[in-house]
């Protein structure tokens, strides 16, 4: 599912200087539109930011499977149950693909899993909200997946080969997710009065987290300019959010479902979407571990890890040592 990680600059972190000659060669390769492969030289900061980005993306896929997974037993009807099982399986598969891509940069999978379980790593804000009704599953499947696709299509044109290849595969599978989400959304929107009320309630609760999903407004920082130059970040948070609103707000409004924001409108002059203050303080609270469901999600994830331990140990091969995948 779920879009790239957030890029936070931490001025504390010491960035060692790169060899200027190799850096020039590296940047020339990116300017020519060539992909960077794991065996290539790359700047320290390029590697560090990519590990963070891909790792956060992988964690988001894993954690994103939890709110929807809880609805498999309660999905209305056999076909929707089958589709939801397939979708949740895909999300977990996407995490595997992304972990492999991040591993090629030198961080082991065990370290990534441990950083998630210990609460050190971040993941997408949206999965720390509850899925109260079936309409939440419809909203996640339609609007959150759509938001993620905007992110992922952009990132798949980035510069790092293994990440791009993983994303191409992911985007191919996501198209079915989006369509089944839209199908569930439309079924409720064109249904009975109480179905419509349930959907409207879910949209009201998810509107703000979705605005948050793309990350805070971009500051003109040297940092993000460099990441754009290196094609780690392909578009600004605001541009991606705008692209999403442009494509999907009309699809919701035409079903006479509304958004709980009187200021949401497209400026006819600039063509940009405007919205009311989404309370970025809430975004930071959620992303730093203090959202409505952070503790529960992490507990469920730890439980899964603990329950799987006996089988991992049973098939463990003590002679083996870790290898890094090639591509």
């Amino acid at each position: 599912m779920y879009g790239g990680g957030y890029v936070f600059s931490d001025p504390e972190h010491q960035i060692p200087p790169d060899d200027p000659e190799k850096l020039a060669e590296f940047e020339a390769r990116i300017d020519r539109g060539e992909k960077i492969e794991p065996q290539d030289w790359m700047p320290y900061e390029y590697r560090r930011q990519l590990i963070r980005l891909i790792e956060q993306h992988a964690h988001s896929e894993i954690m994103g499977a939890l709110p929807e997974g809880a609805w498999i037993t309660r999905a209305p009807g056999f076909k929707r149950k089958l589709a939801l099982i397939a979708k949740v399986q895909d999300e977990v598969g996407h995490a595997q693909l992304l972990y492999s891509a991040a591993e090629t940069l030198g961080k082991s999978r065990a370290d990534m899993v441990n950083d998630l379980l210990s609460g050190k790593s971040k993941y997408s804000n949206v999965f720390n909200y509850p899925a109260k009704t079936w309409a939440d599953v419809a909203v996640i499947g339609f609007l959150i997946d759509a938001a993620a696709i905007v992110n992922q299509v952009a990132n798949s044109k980035g510069s790092y080969g293994p990440y791009c290849r993983a994303l191409e595969r992911i985007c191919y599978e996501e198209s079915f997710h989006l369509k089944q989400g839209y199908d569930a959304f439309v079924a409720l929107a064109t249904g009975t009065k109480s179905q419509r009320a349930m959907l409207q309630d879910a949209v009201n609760r998810w509107y703000r987290p979705i605005i948050h999903f793309f990350g805070p407004p971009d500051q003109e920082s040297k940092h993000s300019k460099q990441l754009m130059r290196w094609k780690v970040k392909m578009a600004s948070n605001d541009d991606m959010r705008n692209q999403f609103l442009d494509s999907y707000v009309p699809k919701v409004l035409e079903l006479d479902i509304t958004f709980p924001d009187p200021e949401l409108r497209k400026d006819p002059q600039t063509g940009r979407w405007q919205f009311g203050d989404p309370d970025w303080a809430e975004f930071y609270r959620v992303i730093n571990g203090d959202g409505p469901c952070n503790a529960e999600r992490l507990a469920v994830r730890r439980l899964a890890e603990a329950q799987g331990r006996w089988i991992r140990q049973a098939i463990m091969n003590p002679q083996q040592s870790v290898t890094i995948p090639f591509a």
Binding site: R109, L117, G119, R302, A306, Q307
Partner: peptide, 24 residues
């Protein structure tokens, strides 16, 4: 929790046990 599985679990393994090297 809104999640019936969580309600059924009865207890949480809330402790963090890091993965060991050969588990990878």
């Amino acid at each position: 929790s809104e999640d019936p599985r969580v309600q059924r679990l009865g207890t949480f393994f809330a402790d963090f046990h890091p993965l060991q090297q050969p588990e990878e």
